[in-house]
Simulated scan of single mutants.
Amino acid sequence: MNNIITSEAEMDARVQVEIAELQKQIEELKAENARLRKALLKASSNLPKMSSKLKSALYE
């Protein structure tokens, strides 16, 4: 019975380590996602804009 308790304690410790690693990975992915969104917004803002004459014609 003592071996079972030890095994469960070891398993709990391993599960906690795995959860901590997954949480770290989630935070890293969130940061990467934010960086990619910022880069995409910056890149899309550099696209050529519609001319004011064309815009006026479309709104008529």
Rank of each mutant, 00 (worst) to 15 (best):
M11N: 07
M11T: 11
M11L: 11
D12M: 06
R14E: 01
R14Y: 00
R14T: 02
V15I: 15
V15L: 11
V15T: 08
V17S: 11
V17I: 10
V17K: 14
V17C: 07
V17H: 12
V17Q: 11
E18M: 05
E18F: 00
A20C: 00
A20H: 01
A20E: 01
E21A: 11
E21D: 09
Q23I: 05
Q23S: 06
K24T: 08
K24H: 05
Q25D: 04
Q25H: 05
I26T: 04
E27K: 14
E27V: 13
E27S: 14
E27F: 10
E27I: 11
E27Q: 15
K30S: 09
K30Q: 13
A31Q: 08
A31H: 05
A31V: 05
A31F: 04
E32C: 08
E32P: 03
A34F: 00
A34W: 01
R35I: 06
R35H: 05
R35E: 04
R35A: 07
L36D: 04
L36R: 13
L36F: 12
L36N: 10
R37Y: 03
K38M: 07
A39I: 03
L40V: 14
L40T: 12
L40P: 08
L41Q: 12
L41N: 11
K42C: 06
A43L: 07
A43N: 11
A43K: 15
A43T: 14
S44C: 13
S44F: 14
S44M: 12
S45L: 09
S45R: 15
S45I: 01
S45H: 13
N46V: 04
N46R: 14
N46A: 03
P48W: 07
P48D: 09
P48S: 12
